[in-house]
Simulated scan of single mutants.
Amino acid sequence: MSFEQSSSAIVHLAWERLLGLADGALAEASATRSPRLEKITRSGDSASFIRLFGGSVLSGPEWFLQRASGLSDEKLTLSGLLAIGQDHGARSVGSAELFFADDLEVINPEEEVVVSLDKAELEQLRAASPADDVNESGILELDHQFTMMLAEQSIASAGYRQWQGLLAQLSVLVDPQLRRNGYGFTVAGIAAHEALGAGLIPQWRASVDNPASKALAEKLGFIHAGSQTTVVF
């Protein structure tokens, strides 16, 4: 799938505002392949390294940025960030690949799909899923949610949370007993199309430790655009 330049501009703007950068700063750095941007954070309790469409930005407390100043982008891996902040008790939040889509093919399920907007159906799915899976998915923190039903059973749910009024951060959760049946693909596609219909750019974050999530994003038609790595102190 292709990704329009105008859509890249929207993604850049959302991340610029999320990180507290000037509008256009990250977009310009991406276009010119400039050295990475740096942003001192007020709280000082975390640091993040983001790569997006060829540009990059490191945000964190001033002492962290000073220590990282002589390191190349390639050195700012999760282990690299942890090493920089080791004496400040650095802990991993994780590293994720970033995917986006501005146009997706219509999904035609092989069987009739019943979708519920009732949070009670999502609660049924949550109760049937391991707590770690629920927490990693972020499925309980969404603005818009869609849960697939099979008879009276909740089998999969997906939805999105708005970022800066521009992006739709997607989340998906499938009943552990019913995975590898295409339900995640179908319900994620429904959520992504709903986000596009609302004028948002769907965003997919796949943990580097979750190849199945990355494969699902690519199957849906999302394009890989970068990564995000975060540690807390």
Score class of each variant (00 low, 15 high):
residue 45 D to T: 14
residue 29 A to S: 13
residue 38 E to T: 13
residue 213 S to L: 14
residue 20 G to Y: 00
residue 195 A to W: 06
residue 198 A to V: 00
residue 123 E to T: 12
residue 164 Q to W: 00
residue 139 I to L: 14
residue 111 E to W: 03
residue 83 A to C: 02
residue 108 N to D: 07
residue 25 A to Q: 15
residue 215 A to Y: 10
residue 171 S to N: 04
residue 174 V to F: 01
residue 160 Y to I: 06
residue 51 R to Y: 01
residue 145 Q to P: 03
residue 138 G to P: 11
residue 55 G to D: 10
residue 49 F to S: 05
residue 171 S to F: 08
residue 99 F to G: 03
residue 67 R to Q: 15
residue 143 D to H: 13
residue 39 K to W: 01
residue 32 T to K: 14
residue 147 T to F: 05
residue 22 A to M: 02
residue 44 G to D: 06
residue 152 E to D: 15
residue 58 L to S: 13
residue 53 F to N: 08
residue 203 Q to K: 14
residue 227 S to L: 05
residue 137 S to Q: 11
residue 101 A to E: 06
residue 83 A to Q: 14
residue 153 Q to Y: 01
residue 188 A to H: 02
residue 37 L to C: 12
residue 141 E to I: 03
residue 77 T to D: 15
residue 113 V to R: 00
residue 90 A to M: 11
residue 95 S to Q: 11
residue 57 V to D: 02
residue 165 G to D: 11
residue 25 A to D: 15
residue 120 A to Y: 03
residue 150 L to N: 13
residue 66 Q to R: 13
residue 66 Q to P: 00
residue 149 M to P: 08
residue 130 P to E: 10
residue 72 S to I: 02
residue 221 G to A: 04
residue 223 I to P: 02
residue 27 A to Q: 15
residue 128 A to P: 03
residue 213 S to P: 06
residue 78 L to D: 08
residue 204 W to Q: 11
residue 201 I to N: 06
residue 34 S to M: 06
residue 67 R to K: 15
residue 170 L to I: 10
residue 19 L to F: 13
residue 66 Q to V: 14
residue 28 E to R: 15
residue 157 S to Q: 03
residue 169 Q to C: 05
residue 100 F to Q: 05
residue 13 L to S: 10
residue 230 T to D: 07
residue 157 S to Y: 00
residue 141 E to C: 02
residue 97 E to G: 08
residue 115 V to E: 05
residue 31 A to N: 06
residue 203 Q to L: 11
residue 202 P to I: 08
residue 10 I to T: 11
residue 8 S to Y: 03
residue 66 Q to S: 12
residue 125 L to W: 09
residue 150 L to F: 03
residue 13 L to C: 13
residue 71 L to T: 06
residue 141 E to Y: 11
residue 132 D to R: 15
residue 147 T to Y: 13
residue 225 A to P: 07
residue 72 S to T: 15
residue 48 S to I: 00
residue 209 D to K: 12
residue 201 I to T: 15
residue 138 G to Y: 05
residue 90 A to L: 05
residue 140 L to G: 04
residue 58 L to Q: 07
residue 89 G to L: 12
residue 21 L to T: 07
residue 68 A to I: 05
residue 44 G to Y: 08
residue 193 H to D: 06
residue 224 H to G: 08
residue 70 G to R: 07
residue 47 A to L: 08
residue 153 Q to M: 07
residue 181 N to W: 01
residue 209 D to V: 02
residue 193 H to V: 00
